[in-house]
């Protein structure tokens, strides 16, 4: 069992990963902050369920994922996909950044892409966090790659 100081230390250590995961699901900074805040509290309440310090990161990320999914359901916000599309369109003239392209992907490709490429998590870790199978994650990644390739083809060719 870990104490409060170690818990806080671990939280701070994983702030980037938490943000990326939460953002990939709720798609804006403010909601991501809310999700993270709620998830930290939940994680702390359930700290006894954690079997070892080594398991902290995947355990924490799973809580973030579940919290975000619940948050989306509760708020039933129509994801401001229109805003995102507009943003992408405006950038067609200028070079699309990878991040903008990734943000424009549909789920589950968006989350899987972020966890795999940005956070260097393994297929197995991703499957545990998103509560699905390794086979499904591989498939999703394969399709995400295809989409990204299509969207980035001009830049990639160069």
């Amino acid at each position: 069992m870990i104490d409060k100081d170690t818990f806080c230390e671990q939280i701070r250590l994983h702030e980037k990963t938490m943000y990326y995961l939460a953002f990939s699901l709720v798609q804006n900074e403010a909601d991501a902050a809310d999700v993270i805040g709620e998830a930290i509290l939940r994680a702390y309440k359930n700290i006894d369920a954690l079997k070892s310090e080594k398991a902290f990161k995947p355990w924490l990320l799973k809580i973030i994922h579940n919290t975000a999914v619940e948050y989306i359901r509760k708020n039933a916000k129509t994801i401001s996909s229109q805003e995102i599309d507009v943003a992408v369109e405006n950038d067609i003239e200028t070079k699309l950044t990878l991040w903008q392209t990734v943000k424009s992907l549909q789920q589950p490709y968006r989350t899987v892409t972020i966890l795999y490429y940005y956070e260097d998590l393994s297929i197995s870790e991703i499957s545990k966090i998103t509560d699905t199978t390794a086979v499904a994650v591989k498939q999703q990644l394969s399709r995400a790659r295809k989409q990204l390739r299509e969207l980035l083809k001009e830049d990639f060719v160069k």
Binding site: K4, C8, K16, A33, I36, I40, W99
Partner: peptide, 23 residues
């Protein structure tokens, strides 16, 4: 690309941490 965590999120994390009770 630049991938720093926004300040608002960092602040929120610190705020949550500060509100945690002692164990």
């Amino acid at each position: 690309e630049d991938h720093s965590v926004p300040d608002s999120v960092k602040e929120r994390i610190e705020q949550s941490i500060s509100e945690l009770p002692e164990r």
